[in-house]
């Protein structure tokens, strides 16, 4: 029995003008599956058909040809939305509502009981960290706050499948990290997440499998770790080596005919630096950190 949450077969979408003349083919014969419980990434440059594919999955656009099922139902079947959560690329929410009202409104669309709506709203507002701003209208929110409340509305129904369009767009590194943590938490809860993003590092961090689209065609599909694995290289990590130790190791490697060995200290990425700075600034306000201090505290991704 298939464990696929999403099944797409030969999906095509052609945008036409008023007279029915073909303008552009956004998606060309796309076929792929998304399995239950995985985090799936849709990648590609602008205009590659990611958002069109997602909108077709949600029933916002009708495919020109091909078939697709979501949670075993047709994409045009409104009842499938009962188990889906969707975070659009921009958070298209009602700016005159506050966070509580927003979640209450979307909860009502799922016919949730008043008690459930209140409980779920409290949980989600707490989860996305908007407890202090829950009574403010969304028009007063920053972009990051708007993304968070957008995410909360996507999760109001505790969905089985979450579709996230550019989930980290507009978020600061802290928010980005929290969003990635959240995606991983959703995965841990057994939910299926489909996301499309330009932030390749983010995709790499959270996705189990990815599909790369280019000009509407599927170019790459597979597991991230398999796709990124460099089979002709080996990486070894130790505590800091002395010059003598380096020479000895180099000799051993030459004995096995390996000549291009490199010995360097690993570097933390900018995200880790940023997160560590923010954290330590909170602990020791008013203090500035020197480059040496930062380098000395670098533990390579343990920020």
């Amino acid at each position: 029995m298939s464990n696929a949450v999403i099944e797409i077969r030969n999906l095509s979408k052609i945008y036409r003008d008023f007279w029915g003349r073909k303008k552009v083919q956004a998606v060309k014969s796309l076929s792929m599956d998304v399995q239950k419980g995985e985090v799936f990434g849709l990648l590609g440059p602008n205009g590659s058909g990611k958002t069109t594919t997602m909108k077709m999955l949600l029933g916002l656009l009708f495919p020109t040809s091909g078939e697709m099922t979501i949670l075993g139902k047709s994409a045009s079947d409104v009842s499938k939305n009962e188990k889906i959560g969707y975070l659009p690329e921009e958070s298209y929410l009602y700016r005159f509502l506050n966070a509580d009202e927003t979640l209450d409104f979307y909860g009502r669309l799922f016919n949730m009981s008043a008690a459930d709506r209140i409980r779920r709203s409290d949980e989600l507002i707490e989860m996305v960290g908007l407890g202090k701003a829950r009574r403010r209208q969304l028009k007063e929110y920053s972009k990051g706050m708007t993304r968070r409340i957008g995410l909360a509305q996507a999760l109001i129904n505790d969905p089985e499948l979450v579709l996230l369009d550019e989930p980290t767009s507009g978020l600061d590194p802290l928010g980005t990290r929290e969003m990635k943590d959240l995606i991983l938490r959703l995965k841990a809860q057994g939910k299926t997440v489909v996301m499309c993003s330009h932030q390749l590092a983010d995709v790499q961090d959270v996705c189990d499998r990815i599909a790369v689209l280019f000009q509407g065609e599927l170019k790459v599909l597979g597991r991230v770790d398999e796709l990124l694995e460099m089979r002709n290289e080996t990486q070894m990590r130790t505590s800091s080596l002395s010059k003598e130790a380096e020479e000895d190791i180099r000799k051993v490697l030459e004995k096995h005919n390996i000549k291009n060995a490199q010995f360097t200290s690993p570097r933390a990425d900018l995200e880790e630096l940023f997160l560590r700075t923010v954290r330590e600034s909170g602990e020791r306000p008013g203090r500035r950190f020197s480059a040496e201090e930062i380098a000395a505290s670098g533990k390579g991704g343990n920020a």
Binding site: G59, Y92, Y94, G150, Q153
Partner: peptide, 14 residues
């Protein structure tokens, strides 16, 4: 116009 309808029609609203 502002596409807030997208967040509504992706719920089970007819």
């Amino acid at each position: 116009r502002i596409r807030s309808l997208h967040t509504v029609v992706t719920k089970p609203a007819r």
